[in-house]
Amino acid sequence: MTSTTDSPLAVEFCGLDFTTPLVLLSGCVGFGEEYTRVKGFSNRDAGAICLKGTTLKPRLGNQPHRIYETPDGMLNAIGLQNPGIDKVVREILPTLDFSETLFIANVSGSSIEEYEEVTRRFDNSPISAIEINISCPNVKEGGIAFGNDPAMSAKVVEACRRATNKPLITKLSPNQTDIAGNAKGCIEAGTDAFAVINTLMGMAINIENRSPIIGNNQGGLSGPAIKPVALLKVHQVYRVCRDHGIPIIGQGGITCAEDVLEFLIAGATAVGIGTALFYDPLICGKINQGIKSYLERHELQSVMQLTGTLRLNSPKLPRCGC
């Protein structure tokens, strides 16, 4: 890729040069090939593309329905459908154009050993970085998600760290008690960055037959409905990361340039676009133009000048003590 250091949208992320702060999120663009068929779409509008979650063996995914539209969002329970690491590395990666943008692998698993092995396979590939999805259930521990237990989160990060020298991005779940404490443990275990947040868990019910609409009963809620939660989580994690130089991909409900700017100010270095791509595949170009306009209006030379610039209020306690 050509140098982007002179562009006001360029960001440095774990030693990688992103042309823009926008990242296309895992699960929303397949393995990068889906959006190349959309007229007017350009990989250059995104700083990086996260590939679909990959496991050791092929997976068919969950039974339908897998996706359901909700007010200001979407429920999904795809179930990590993918062809397995062998096919991804041997057949899919060679078809990607690494000259236009960076590609980030997404590793998923049902055991620490699976995470480690899939990460090792991606280490010997042209992938620029590896994202680990620790929201998966640990089959050896009764199905509890790795990401909801700080000790297990750290163990996954530690195992993946042994398997690669590439930048390691840990995708944190909001479905836990203390996301900042979990982030601290992951930093100590060797993560280089975070993606904050993964989807919130939710449900939709068919009132006629009184059963869940999603075949898996529950699914991950994404879209504008979760943006306020995501913003708070990004800032909470940023307060742990800032002294360690650990960057964050902020994500959750971004639909316009204003949303991106909020996440940057809250502490993100890059910002993920996901659900919005389903109704506007060309949204990245529009967002980039909006960011440029903001930078010009505020006489800023680089989008990186915004990261972590949130000015917190100093609320006073009410006189009644409530």
Rank of each mutant, 00 (worst) to 15 (best):
284 C>V: 14
306 L>E: 09
261 L>V: 03
278 F>N: 06
235 H>A: 01
290 G>F: 01
198 N>A: 07
216 N>C: 01
26 S>W: 08
78 I>C: 05
116 E>Q: 15
155 K>G: 01
115 Y>C: 08
46 A>H: 02
165 N>L: 04
209 N>H: 12
259 D>N: 11
238 Y>T: 02
76 N>Q: 03
104 I>K: 02
71 P>K: 03
116 E>Y: 13
40 G>V: 04
71 P>H: 06
130 I>F: 04
209 N>V: 10
11 V>P: 05
173 S>A: 10
153 S>G: 13
102 L>W: 11
293 S>I: 01
187 I>P: 02
224 P>W: 12
254 I>A: 12
265 I>F: 03
43 N>S: 03
16 L>N: 07
22 L>W: 07
10 A>M: 06
106 N>K: 10
284 C>T: 07
9 L>T: 09
101 T>D: 11
99 S>Y: 03
201 M>W: 02
150 P>G: 12
18 F>M: 02
60 L>T: 15
84 G>H: 09
65 H>G: 00
164 T>L: 07
151 A>L: 14
119 T>Q: 12
176 Q>E: 13
172 L>G: 06
266 A>Y: 14
23 V>Y: 10
218 Q>S: 12
83 P>R: 08
166 K>G: 03
12 E>N: 14
208 E>I: 05
5 T>M: 01
175 N>V: 05
228 P>W: 06
56 L>K: 14
154 A>C: 11
208 E>V: 12
157 V>L: 09
84 G>Y: 13
40 G>T: 03
118 V>N: 12
248 I>N: 06
140 K>T: 14
2 T>V: 10
281 P>I: 04
289 Q>I: 00
143 G>Q: 10
154 A>W: 07
254 I>W: 12
130 I>N: 09
270 A>F: 05
251 Q>F: 01
187 I>C: 12
183 A>R: 00
132 I>R: 10
214 I>W: 11
207 I>S: 06
89 V>P: 07
9 L>F: 03
85 I>S: 09
193 A>V: 02
13 F>R: 11
84 G>P: 13
49 I>N: 02
105 A>M: 14
56 L>Y: 15
190 G>P: 09
282 L>P: 00
257 A>C: 07
198 N>H: 06
28 C>Y: 15
247 P>F: 06
248 I>F: 06
125 S>M: 10
26 S>D: 15
147 G>R: 11
71 P>C: 10
221 L>K: 10
194 F>N: 11
52 K>F: 14
233 K>V: 03
291 I>H: 00
4 T>Q: 04
189 A>S: 13
78 I>V: 15
279 Y>L: 00
235 H>V: 03
32 G>Q: 08
225 A>Y: 13
266 A>H: 09
218 Q>E: 09
275 T>A: 03
94 P>V: 08
286 K>I: 06
142 G>C: 06
180 A>M: 02
295 L>I: 05
100 E>P: 00
